[in-house]
Amino acid sequence: MTDLRLGIIGFGLRSSLARWAHRPGEGSVVTFVCDDDERGRRDALERVPGVAVTGRLDDLLGSHRDEIDAVLVLTPDHLHTEHAVRTLEAGLPTFLEKPVATTIEGADRILAAAYRTGTRLYVGHNMRHMPVITAMREVIQRGTIGQVRAIWCRHFVSAGGDYYFKDWHADRRNTTGLLLQKGAHDIDIIHWLAGGYTERVSAIGSLSIYGDITDRRDNSDRRMWDWYSLDNWPPTAQRELHPIVDVEDISMANLLIEGGVLASYQQCHFTPDYWRNYTVIGTRGRVENFGDGPGSKVKVWTTRTDAYREDADEVITIPAADDAGHGGADPLLIAEFVRFARDGGPTMTSPVAARMSVAAGVAATVSLRSGGSAVVVPPLDPDVLAWFERSQAPV
């Protein structure tokens, strides 16, 4: 089988995916990288043997278009709409890093471009491939806990000060807010486990810690791994934050999901530990994860007791694995995209679901910044929705 030739647009924080995309002789090879930053181009030359680089997207989609079969868009969030629309209009099957966009309008433009051109679009919601999440979904799918009625997600982000408040993420013009940027993952998984999308949402939140830190620096000459350290603790001791910090560092959203499922999502960026805890309660029991990477456990309770029972009725241990990135999901994510770009067909991730997670995140942010009142999530254009359901029904 001939390797699928891949281009990468943006060789920054998610350039780790190149490790799985560049597999000469195994199905895919990265032939071209486009990054307008000299450091990104230099990193690509060092890490991807034989790759060609350019600083101009016009080159990649113009004179070099025939040298690639598909493309990975890994640029900062606020550039997704511009870049993805262009790659889709160029007829290139497109992997788009999550969130699909930072606005509902931007997400709708991207999906409409795929619909209009008939080009394959894949959104990198890698958590749908995480073994701990797939184990929880399998418990739900086989009916062990009955019909899902409630979902709670607590997201502890110990690295928040390093990951989101020292670079472009801290400026809401680039992200809308972390309820969208960071929450898009979790909202998508809440929807996936619930079997429906958010219809209405209300939220509260604040900039509780990082807004008070006055030590600021323009870090555009650096990358996250230049400053990340476990020694950056406690959160109030963080230094060299982005000059603009106007996104919330703690937020809580309540979601009303199709079918009457109630969900709650909490996100905090100054906790001492880093993991997600999902609790799903059904009409016959509940399932909960303890840890979210290799070696974590999924516990299922289906017998009534009068106290907490640690051993549970069923315990699923997620096998330990080599560090594959993002809880073991990244290689599965890229493998599915390569197959989809080549052959089409159903996928575990969904552009429609990606749009709906953005829409819920935007609505939650609007609610948060307007006193917490309920905000209705606007639906996707029915013609676009029908096209994706016909051409790329999710697994």
Rank of each mutant, 00 (worst) to 15 (best):
F340M: 03
D311C: 08
P99M: 08
G259S: 05
D226C: 08
G295L: 00
A101K: 13
E199D: 09
T102F: 04
V29S: 14
I189Y: 04
L111C: 01
S16H: 13
I190C: 05
E38F: 03
M356T: 03
A194L: 10
L178T: 01
G106M: 13
L178F: 04
R154W: 00
G10V: 05
V358R: 09
S373T: 11
L72N: 08
M1A: 15
D171S: 00
R369K: 10
E240D: 15
G325A: 10
S202R: 15
A320V: 05
T198K: 05
P49F: 01
S16W: 04
T117Y: 00
G10S: 12
G62M: 06
I316R: 10
G7S: 07
R42L: 08
E310W: 08
G344H: 08
V29E: 13
G211V: 03
E336I: 05
D343H: 08
D306K: 15
C268F: 11
S296V: 10
P131S: 01
L13N: 12
C268V: 11
G325I: 14
Q181W: 00
A21M: 12
I318L: 01
Q238A: 15
S296K: 05
W275C: 04
V247W: 00
L61A: 01
N219P: 00
P272K: 13
R5N: 05
D43H: 10
A386K: 09
P346I: 01
R137L: 07
M130S: 12
H22A: 01
E248S: 12
A21I: 14
S370V: 02
